[in-house]
């Protein structure tokens, strides 16, 4: 296959950046999207040009590193698939493919397609944990969990923190990511002690980082490589309502 790529090139955070066209020839349909970029980069290096910087690590769809918006869709056209797992057979010979970084104020571009997703770490640090005694692993059946809760928690736990939900959201909101973490921990018995402070603190960290607010627009779930359901955001909202009510009760009695 022969393709035209239009790739966002930006030398650093201060550079304005621009779309630059490249031709790639003899692309095998069996290559992954990242392998296709590797081929381009090898050629650029041989030609003495700066290779295209992009994030990647596992290349097997579990780390969430491979962030890029392909033809306007985060991780490209195939549903439930990360860029590293996307194959060139989803494209046709002669196609022009636009490749851009995640666009969000909270995810500033470091270089080319690489963005700083440290804002997600801030959200996790605000409450994405449980307090558990360390030591030897507890007996697996010591704390029973209802099957339905376990399933819903597991579904939310599939989130790989890639940020595609933010990239897809018309509001630049990270609510799907935040809701996935809140659901994953909040449905477990081990997550109960911090349940109220978790939602309030994580939402505060989310807002603080400069993400937009969720308006249930529904763009995130179709873009999510793990298919985190939209309804997960309802769980966050419900926890937020309950926690706010309790907290205002506390301040009323304390004050």
């Amino acid at each position: 296959m022969n393709l035209t790529l239009r790739i966002w090139r930006q030398q650093g955070p201060q550079d304005k950046g621009r779309m630059v066209s490249y031709q790639v020839t003899d692309v095998s349909p069996d290559m992954s999207f990242l392998e296709m970029l590797d081929v381009l980069n090898e050629r650029l290096i041989l030609e003495g040009e700066e290779p295209v910087a992009f994030d990647h690590d596992c290349r097997e769809g579990i780390c969430g590193a491979c962030s890029m918006v392909i033809n306007g869709t985060p991780h490209g056209p195939q549903k439930m698939t990360t860029t590293c797992q996307l194959h060139m057979r989803t494209f046709s010979d002669g196609d022009t493919i636009d490749i851009e970084p995640w666009r969000a104020k909270a995810f500033p571009v470091i270089k080319d397609l690489v963005v700083n997703r440290g804002a997600f770490d801030k959200i996790i640090q605000a409450g994405g944990y449980i307090s558990a005694p360390t030591g030897s692993a507890p007996e697996a059946h010591a704390t029973p969990v209802p099957k339905a809760d376990a399933d819903a928690a597991f579904e939310a736990a599939e989130c790989i923190g890639c940020g595609a939900c933010v990239a897809a959201c018309p509001n630049g909101s990270a609510m799907l990511f935040t809701a996935a973490k809140i659901t994953h921990l909040g449905l477990m018995p081990q997550g109960q002690p911090e349940r109220d402070s978790r939602v309030l603190d994580m939402v505060a960290a989310h807002d603080e980082a400069g993400f937009g607010g969720c308006t249930n627009a529904g763009e995130c779930t179709p873009a999510c490589p793990k298919g985190i359901p939209l309804a997960t955001i309802g769980r966050l909202n419900r926890d937020f309502l309950a926690a706010s009510r309790k907290r205002s009760g506390e301040t009323a009695t304390a004050g």
Binding site: V69, D98, K105, A106, N171, G210, F211, G212, G213
Partner: peptide, 12 residues
């Protein structure tokens, strides 16, 4: 807020 959250728009 939504507008401020995406200062650079997508080309595509």
């Amino acid at each position: 807020r939504a507008r401020a959250a995406r200062p650079v728009r997508y080309a595509h």
